[in-house]
Amino acid sequence: MSKKTSEKKYASLKAKQTAGNIIVYIILTLMAIIWLAPFVLIVLESFRCETTMQVGYVLPKQWGLDNYKWLFENGQYNFPRWYMNTFIIALFVAVIQTFMVLCMSYTLSRMRFKGRKFLMNFMLVLGMFPGFLGMIIMYKVLSGWGMTGVGSVPGLILVYTASSAMGYYVSKGFFDTIPKSLDEAARVDGATRAQVLFHITIHMAKPIIIYTVLTAFMAPWGDFMFASYIAHNTGDGMNVAVGLQNLIGTNASLAANYTHFCAGGVLVAIPVTVLFMCLQKYYVEGVTGGAVKG
């Protein structure tokens, strides 16, 4: 093969690669548009003032903050209350659930004791029951304690966190990767198991703690099923998901509140999104690790 033909071949290969890359760029750009469009649209519609109904065009004819004002000033729907409810629930769930999950996952990863395998199998089987099934009785019990309807915030915190240790899988996978020899070295030096946990392991577990806090904090913002059952159509006991769904639940309310819903959605999305984007590094680590360990 002469030098010239090989150069020619190289050049054609390069052209082929460039063509391939251009196709990939086109696909990615199209996908980016599809994936981002709804969010751009929702922001645009939240600034539309001329009508609250759904319209056939994208850009508002009259820009303004009317929809946001409405959320705080209307007498019928208590959006600030929903927001506060969800925020308080999310804070408590983040703290309590992290505690529960870390206790469970650390124990199952690090310690060997009688009944450990049985416990893991038991939780696996228990997790196959639809969690909502227990809500029928939980509702009756919680309403006896005054934790439903208007007082749904403590009730929901209880419902979300009490059994949260069953979601220990990702966290256990992480602890499994911390070498056991570190523990053993400390134990030889006379440290108790509690000291090993609080002085050694906890410092290395920062990524998984942040991951657990982040996912625990985000979950209550999106839960609909439990929240709507516990709130039981009481306006003041709703979280944002139930409240905003209520806002556009029927055809009549959809026409009256469509742009209000968009504004509410934007207000909910902003803090959660900012928090998530700041901590996304830990989230990605958790998701990748969790998938491999199962």
Partner: peptide, 14 residues
């Protein structure tokens, strides 16, 4: 990743 960050119920309802 941005689309993960936005609470699902908002995107679903919208």
């Amino acid at each position: 990743v941005l689309t993960i960050a936005i609470p699902q119920f908002i995107s679903l309802l919208y």
